[in-house]
Amino acid sequence: MNPRHFIAVLAAQTLLLLALIAQQEYRLAAPTTVLLETAPVDPRDLLRGDYVILNYKVSNLTNSLWETAPAGQTGHGLPVFVSLEQRGEFHEAVLLSTTRPEPLPNRVVIQARTQPSWGNNQVRVEYGLERYYVQEGTGNPRGKLTVQVAVDAAGKPVIKQVFLDGKPYAEAMREQMKP
């Protein structure tokens, strides 16, 4: 066997992993961050361990937010853009569109995909921010969860930090779990 081929495959594997890391680091380094409200649920993933399911207030939107409502079904992974504006401490959805809206100074645009929704007047969207992986046994928090999200120039979001009652998640859980 040619050792160059073997090294090429390993290099390809490593580059792929590094590309995934670089992509996420680029998003995390984005200067734009938003704070979102959420409610937790705690299941476990076979490979990645315990996580908290984050159900955002901005995941369930009303049909009135559509800039122009698309024709046909919207509940099957349609790519959409959600425009957020800061209202008090948190960012809230103000506009939903299928094309990227014009940038406004006080708005942050996040990419999302529509999901099937139970309500007639509702649009459910997923941002890819719905899981927060935590240390084993710390996936059952008590208190108010808020999520700081970094958004890159293309509108791709990534979780930067999760707070539990205003404190970083890991620190707050250590305090909660003290006997």
């Binding site: 992993l17 996420q24 490979l47 990645r48 361990g49 992986y133």
Partner: peptide, 16 residues
């Protein structure tokens, strides 16, 4: 290699 893919998903909280 699979473990590393899972690790990246875990570290960056990817839920695709």
């Amino acid at each position: 290699f699979l473990a590393d893919i899972a690790l990246i998903g875990q570290v960056y909280h990817l839920s695709s």
